[in-house]
């Protein structure tokens, strides 16, 4: 009896389900690897970081595991000048770098969009800084900025007579680190903005030219307003991404001179290496908080301008 009814069914339990149910199962199977990877390396460890940030935990001393200390780690941040300096430099780095990446990126995008013979060469060249390892760029520029043997101080001396000491002076070191970030990531921004430029209809510019507009009026009254949603999303992406910067200052200046170019990520790295896991986690939470805040502001701006555009 049972055998008969089973034989009458198409083989397998799967086929007995409705089409919709089958689709759900397929969806779950397809999503499983990606979701598992993200849970394993992002969501779950993030919960643990949040937990650790409220605990004192140094595996070298606290053999009984993490000790709950409430917000103590966060009040300690309030009196830690290195963390505060690192937050200050990170914000300066991110805002300065993003500003120049967007403005220079817009200029480079215009160059890549211009009708001239070497356009395709320019488009191949522009990928290179984005594509090479940050470690190579950071160390290469450290060598090029070197006071005695570097070519950048030497070229500056020959061209302008100015004698600038780059990586020894705190302010110049900050400027040098930001300029490498601009060199490395402006091309990426330019490529995204190029795609945006290609989406603006030529008829707008034709109409403006008939009305007597010059290049600058076109830039400020057509190009920038039309690109505003892309400028905001790209800017937000660059800010959020660069808030977590680690390898560039770590390899180029090691955070120095002093702590003048230490970023939040490097401070977390240092505290983790000293096994101060609880304290490192609380600084991590501050970093995540800054990222979330910036992201929220960016989303708000995007919604506002995307609707109006």
């Amino acid at each position: 009896m049972a055998a008969q009814s089973r034989a009458a069914q198409p083989p397998g339990r799967f086929s007995r389900l409705t089409l919709r149910q089958r689709f759900y199962i397929v969806a779950v199977l397809l999503l499983l690897p990606a979701v598992a990877l993200r849970v394993f390396t992002a969501f779950y460890p993030f919960l643990q970081t949040a937990y650790l940030s409220l605990h004192k935990y140094n595996p070298a001393f606290d053999h009984d595991g993490p000790v709950f200390v409430g917000l103590n780690n966060f009040t300690r941040i309030g009196s830690d000048p290195v963390v505060q300096a690192s937050i200050g430099f990170t914000l300066l780095f991110v805002l300065g770098a993003t500003f120049f990446q967007l403005t220079l990126g817009l200029a480079v995008a215009h160059l890549l969009n211009a009708a001239f013979r070497l356009r395709y060469l320019a488009r191949a060249l522009v990928l290179i800084p984005w594509a090479i390892p940050m470690a190579v760029a950071a160390l290469g520029f450290r060598w090029m900025f070197d006071d005695q043997f570097g070519i950048i101080p030497d070229l500056l001396r020959t061209l302008t007579g100015a004698n600038v000491r780059w990586l020894i002076d705190p302010n110049n070191a900050k400027l040098a680190v930001v300029s490498v970030a601009v060199w490395k990531s402006t091309p990426f921004v330019a490529l995204v903005l190029l795609a945006g430029l290609q989406g603006i209809g030529r008829d707008l510019y034709e109409a403006a030219r008939v009305d007597g507009a010059n290049a600058w009026t076109c830039l400020f009254y057509i190009t920038i307003p039309m690109l505003l949603p892309i400028l905001i999303t790209t800017g937000m992406f660059m800010i959020v991404w660069q808030l977590a910067v680690f390898d560039l200052p770590f390899l180029m200046t090691g955070g120095g001179p002093g702590f003048s170019t230490t970023v939040i990520a490097q401070k977390i790295y240092l505290e983790s290496n000293s096994l101060n896991y609880g304290y490192a986690a609380s600084i991590s939470m501050v970093l995540v908080g800054i990222v979330a805040l910036v992201g929220a502001v960016g989303l708000y701006l995007f919604r506002r301008f995307d609707v109006s555009a």
Binding site: A42, T49, L243, A244, Y269, S272, S284, L287, V291
Partner: peptide, 15 residues
């Protein structure tokens, strides 16, 4: 999935 891109690598390194 998309927003998790904003989570800094370094912030979850210890766990």
């Amino acid at each position: 999935l998309i927003l998790s891109v904003a989570l800094p690598q370094i912030a979850v390194l210890v766990p």
